[in-house]
């Protein structure tokens, strides 16, 4: 812990309630949009449905990781420790789905 004065670029303060409430608001709004999209049959039938839902979910994912898990403000080592495995995991997931899922063929 306590990387204080040694790493001057990490001494920035945490976000506080002021930012957190906006983060929560944005997450809530995106969640509402996701569920809303689910209930528009024309949109569900369109080819934009799946990509837009994946995008919204990815944005939520990134926001939580960056702000709530304060990766944006933390030591860069933690960014490496998280993104490395995340990339391997995502690549494995995509490869497995392409190799085995019947609905993608």
């Amino acid at each position: 812990m306590a990387e204080h004065a040694v790493n001057p670029d990490h001494v920035r303060e945490h976000p506080t309630w002021k930012q957190y409430k906006w983060v929560a608001a944005i997450l809530t709004i995106i969640t509402i949009l996701e569920v809303w999209a689910y209930y528009i049959p024309a949109f569900v039938a369109s080819s934009a449905f799946v990509p837009s839902l994946l995008l919204m979910s990815a944005v939520k994912f990134a926001i939580v990781v960056m702000f709530y898990m304060h990766l944006k403000y933390d030591h860069k080592l933690f960014r490496v420790l998280f993104t490395g495995p995340l990339v391997v995991a995502a690549a494995t997931l995509v490869a497995l789905v392409f190799l085995l899922a019947t609905w993608i063929r």
């Binding site: 812990m1 420790l81 998280f82 495995p85 789905v97």
Partner: peptide
């Protein structure tokens, strides 16, 4: 300058990414 426990928990979270990736892949497959 970082605490051991925090390095360990991030490593653990990296591991959990693979755990849930395997579970989600299977669901999707």
């Amino acid at each position: 300058g970082l605490d051991n426990r925090k390095v360990a928990i991030w490593s653990f979270i990296g591991s959990e990414c693979m755990l849930f990736a395997s579970l989600i892949s299977t669901y999707l497959i």
